[in-house]
Design a protein around this nucleic acid. Structure first.
Lengths: 143, 143
DNA sequence: GATAGGGCTTCCCATCGTTGGAAGGTCAAG
DNA sequence: CTTGACCTTCCAACGATGGGAAGCCCTATC
């Protein structure tokens, strides 16, 4: 299938597909005799994976690393496992933070459920979590 | 406390604090007689909240909205609740996606735990989730 | 065969969040 | 007094993405 269809079914814009190819995130697409990029369903899977990972805040570099786990047949399995586990750790941490945030907002929603909202505790609730002093800062992954 | 200390304890760089102030995300800081910005612990809470929200992928605009819930005393409680619930929905959705991704990576990690890694199913596992065909696309957008 | 709508390429520009630096000045603590 | 932290304003860059223009080629349809 050509780039337009691949974009449609993967949810990644044609522009970004070309961009990813240019930056080595995906291998250069096959070309038809007339020079059109030609995508397999496998390529589409890769694109979907990329999109999902981007949606979750993974940087392109990180996605590249993840795709490498699958791509590089030559890679040490221990390496693969290590990287995967590290990413899982990141995810779990972020999930926890998100749950905290959701809880805070839920508290806000219920505490304000009447018509007379009291002093809303968005901030008060959020000061306890670990961070702030330590600059662990993995920062949105991006970068 | 001055901006440096506020940055230190909030985990938001001094530069970003000024940037947030400039963009109305936080109200202009008090100033000492000599013109230094002067931050209260409340301000620090706000900064921490901002940082946490940014880490979770909220855009500055969204954070502004959230801070507004707490800031604007004049706001309709129903409004506050609506927005909070919407954000909670976003979070829950993202948490689910992250859990899927973590599961996939876990599968990868265990399937590759031996020394002979098989065809890794990163992509195969990821094609089933809803998206891709339907263009719900809050994100990248197709073009 | 002509036309329209993709695709191809290479540009350049804009956005957002963030960081970095320079320059030139003021302040506070040693 | 010196040093470091702050003040200001600027300007640039990054990564990821979107938008567009220009010019040319391909494909499908009438």
């Amino acid at each position: 299938m050509n780039i337009g269809e691949a974009a449609r079914v993967s949810g990644v814009s044609a522009k970004m597909i070309r961009y990813y190819e240019q930056n080595g995130l995906i291998p250069p697409a096959e070309r038809t005799a007339s020079g059109y990029r030609d995508y397999s369903t496998n390529d589409v899977h890769m694109l979907r994976f990329i999109r999902r990972a981007r949606d979750l805040g993974f940087s392109v570099a990180e996605i590249n690393e993840l795709l490498g786990l699958w791509r590089d047949r030559s890679r040490q399995s221990a390496d693969v496992k290590r990287i995967a586990l590290a990413r899982i750790g990141d995810l779990r941490r972020k999930i926890e933070e998100m749950e905290q945030m959701a809880a805070t907002l839920e508290h806000l929603a219920t505490c304000c459920s009447g018509d007379n909202r009291p002093d809303c505790p968005i901030l008060a609730d959020l000061e306890n979590p670990d961070d702030g002093d330590e600059p662990k800062r993995p920062r949105g992954a991006i970068n």
